[in-house]
Design a protein around this nucleic acid. Structure first.
Length: 306
DNA sequence: AAGAAAGTCAACCGCCCACGT
DNA sequence: AACGTGGGCGGTTGACTTTCT
C-alpha cells in the first residue's frame, strides 16, 4: 500500500469537502514536515489542529499533526528506555486505572500515552502470555503486585544505594525521597547495580543514572533477599501515593503477600543465579520451564487462598 | 549467510465527548 | 434539541529492526 499519498476519508464523513478531496499524506513524517510543523507551532502555538495543518501548508490531517507533535516533536518529550522507577509507576498506576494511558502518562513527565501503551503491550503483556494467563486476570495482577513490584522497589533501592556510594544524583531521590538511607546493597555479582545483560541486547533499559538495566521481569529473580524490604517498600509506596495525593495499595496486604512470594521465589532463585550471572541470558525471557511451573503454582495457591 | 520469527514503536483509525451555533 | 467541529483517547496496524534457527 502506498502510505505516502492516500485519499483520506475523514471519520464519520463530517469533514468539509475540500479537506476530504485534498491529497493528504500518510505514513512516516519527513524531516521537512517536522521542521514545518515545529516552526509553525513556535510562531503560532499549538491547538486548532485542522486549521494549523492547513495554514502551515502540511498535507496532513490535524490529528496527524497533533499526534506527531505530542508524541515526538514536543520539546519535553523524554526519549530513551523506561526507567525502573517509571516501570514501577506504570505498574502501580495501571493496577489502579487500567488502560487509562493518558491518565497514567500524566504522572510520568515527558512520557506519552502512546509510549506507555506500547511498553505495556510489548513488555508486560508478553509475560502474561508466557504465564498463560490473561493480563487482566487477578492472577497476573497479583503476580505484578506481590512479586514484580516489590522486586522493582528492591532494585530501585539497590541502584540508589549504589549511586549514593558513587555520589550520583538519583531520580529515585526525587521521586522517592522517603527511601531508607540504609538501602539494601546486594551483591549478586553486581547484577543489582544495573549491569547490562550483554548478550541479549534486548529489552534493556536504563536506570536513573544512565546505567543500563534489564527489563522489569529481571526483578523476579535478581534479589531474593527481603531484608528491610517491608519498611522500604512501604515508604516508596507512600511516596508514590503522596505524588498522587491518594492512598494506594494497603501495605499490609501488599507486603504480606510479597514476602510469601519472595521467600519461596528466593529458594528457586538460588538455582538460577549462576545461570543468570554467568550467561546473562536471563534478562528478558527469563521464564524457563521451572520458573513457569513455580509461578503457576504460586498463582494457583494464591488464587485458592483468595 | 539467509530466511523466519519475534519485538518495537510511530502512525492511523474510529469512537466518544465537549463545546459552539 | 440537533448538528457540526475539534480534539482526546484506546485499540490496532504495519514497517522496520533485532534475534533466532
Amino acid at each position: 500500500m502506498d502510505h505516502q499519498h492516500v485519499k483520506v476519508g475523514l471519520s464519520r464523513g463530517v469533514a468539509n469537502k475540500n479537506e476530504e478531496d485534498m491529497d493528504l499524506r500518510r505514513g512516516p513524517w519527513t524531516d521537512e514536515e517536522d521542521f514545518t510543523l515545529m516552526n509553525y507551532i513556535a510562531h503560532h502555538g499549538e491547538g486548532r489542529w485542522n486549521s494549523l495543518a492547513r495554514c502551515a501548508g502540511l498535507k496532513r490531517t490535524g490529528k496527524s499533526c497533533r499526534l506527531r507533535w505530542l508524541n515526538y516533536l514536543r520539546p519535553d518529550v523524554r526519549r530513551g528506555n523506561i526507567t525502573l522507577e517509571e516501570q514501577l509507576l506504570i505498574l502501580e498506576l495501571h493496577s489502579r486505572w487500567g488502560n487509562r494511558w493518558s491518565k497514567i502518562a500524566q504522572h510520568l513527565p515527558g512520557r506519552t500515552d502512546n509510549e506507555i501503551k506500547n511498553y505495556w503491550r510489548t513488555r508486560v503483556q508478553k509475560h502474561a502470555k508466557q504465564l498463560k494467563c490473561d493480563v487482566n486476570s487477578k492472577q497476573f495482577k497479583d503476580t505484578m503486585r506481590y512479586l514484580w513490584m516489590p522486586r522493582l522497589v528492591e532494585r530501585i533501592q539497590a541502584a540508589a544505594g549504589a549511586s549514593t556510594s558513587t555520589g550520583t544524583t538519583s531520580e529515585v531521590v526525587h521521586h522517592h525521597q522517603t527511601i531508607h538511607p540504609n538501602m539494601v546493597q546486594i551483591d549478586h555479582n553486581n547484577k543489582n547495580t544495573g549491569v547490562t545483560n550483554s548478550n541479549t541486547g534486548t529489552a534493556s533499559s536504563e536506570n536513573s543514572f544512565g546505567t543500563p538495566v534489564s527489563d522489569l521481569t529481571d526483578c523476579c529473580y535478581n534479589y531474593p533477599q527481603v531484608r528491610n524490604q517491608q519498611q522500604d517498600c512501604f515508604q516508596v509506596n507512600q511516596s508514590i501515593s503522596s505524588q498522587l495525593g491518594e492512598s494506594l495499595i494497603s501495605p499490609t496486604g501488599y507486603f504480606h503477600h510479597a514476602l510469601e512470594f519472595q521467600g519461596a521465589a528466593s529458594m528457586d532463585h538460588q538455582q538460577n543465579t549462576t545461570q543468570w550471572v554467568d550467561g546473562g541470558s536471563f534478562s528478558d525471557n527469563l521464564w524457563n520451564i521451572e520458573d513457569m511451573w513455580f509461578l503457576q503454582q504460586q498463582l494457583n495457591s494464591n488464587n485458592n487462598v483468595v
